[in-house]
Computed example of a mutant assay.
Amino acid sequence: MALSTLRDKRERGFLDGQFLIAMPGMPDGNFHRSVVYICAHSPAGAMGFIINRPQEISFTEILLHLKLVDQPEAITLPGATRDFPILNGGPVETGRGFVLHSDDYVSESSIPVSDDISLTATLDIVRAICEDRGPRKATMLLGYAGWGPGQLESEIGNNAWLNCPASEDLIFARTLDNKYERALALMGVSPEMLSAEAGHA
């Protein structure tokens, strides 16, 4: 699904606002032990972001690359700004940045993806975060996950994914190591249970 579809989309699909949790037998290495937040789902396809995969680049490096600060300014940035989380959002358009954030920040380019969460993909929000004018909760993602028409439904039917309602706390949690287990816990499932089920399939 193209990002433009998300902007044009008004009717929500049944996976909108859901987590996809990769099953142990997930054939695509891009999604091994991944938790994906689905932002848009329709007959045209689906789009979302992996929320538990770190990105090697730092927010300071992004600010320097975008020339929003220079080296002397970068050194004096507050710790909260320097530590702003950057995640690997998925294998599509990996050089492009997106910010998932609470709905207390709104710009002309912000797209609501749920009642409480919006998506902004412009420099305005990066500048606002840098200047401490940004949203209360936010995370930046490079790249996204996309599926064509019927593709995601087919993967779910083939037992590649579990799905459950998303948790805002989990989307914005800074600790990534246990997000997979915490997402499963939302369903009352443990990784050991999944491994056992996969072994007896």
Rank of each mutant, 00 (worst) to 15 (best):
F98T: 01
G45Y: 00
G146D: 02
L77C: 09
L170K: 07
G157A: 15
R7H: 10
E73A: 14
A196P: 00
G150S: 02
H101N: 11
P27K: 02
L141K: 03
S4Q: 10
S110K: 06
R133P: 10
P191W: 11
I51T: 05
L176T: 00
D8W: 05
L152H: 07
S34V: 06
E181L: 04
S109T: 03
D16M: 03
S102H: 08
Q55T: 00
V113W: 04
I86W: 09
R7T: 06
Y144N: 11
S167R: 03
W161G: 03
H32T: 15
V35T: 12
Q71P: 00
W147P: 08
L6K: 00
V36E: 03
L3C: 04
T139S: 15
G95T: 11
R96P: 06
K179Q: 07
L184E: 07
S190D: 11
N52Y: 09
A74V: 05
D177A: 15
Q18Y: 09
Q55A: 15
L15G: 05
G97K: 04
V189F: 06
G48K: 04
G150M: 06
K137H: 15
T120N: 14
A121I: 02
P24M: 07
F19E: 04
R33L: 09
N30F: 12
L87Y: 10
K179A: 10
A40F: 02
R133Y: 09
A80P: 12
T94L: 02
G13K: 07
S154C: 09
F98N: 07
L77G: 04
S190Q: 13
L184Y: 01
A183T: 11
N178E: 15
A196S: 13
I156R: 02
G134L: 00
A128L: 01
L141N: 14
R12K: 12
S58D: 08
G143K: 06
A128H: 12
S118V: 05
H32C: 11
L162Q: 05
V126R: 07
L162V: 14
N30K: 08
L184D: 08
E131W: 08
E155G: 01
A196N: 13
G157F: 12
N88V: 00
L123D: 13
L141M: 14
M23R: 03
L64A: 03
G157I: 11
T120L: 12
S107K: 04
D83M: 09
K9M: 14
V69Y: 02
Y37F: 15
A74W: 08
G150R: 05
D169G: 15
T94G: 06
P191E: 14
L20D: 02
T120C: 13
A121T: 04
A145D: 09
M140A: 13
I57M: 14
N178L: 13
G95Q: 15
M187K: 12
A44M: 06
V99M: 13
L63S: 04
E168L: 13
E153P: 05
L119M: 12
E61W: 09
I38C: 10
A183K: 07
T120V: 00
Q55K: 14
E181K: 11
M193V: 15
S190K: 14
S58M: 06
S109L: 11
V35P: 05
L162K: 03
L68R: 09
L186A: 12
P24W: 04
T81H: 08
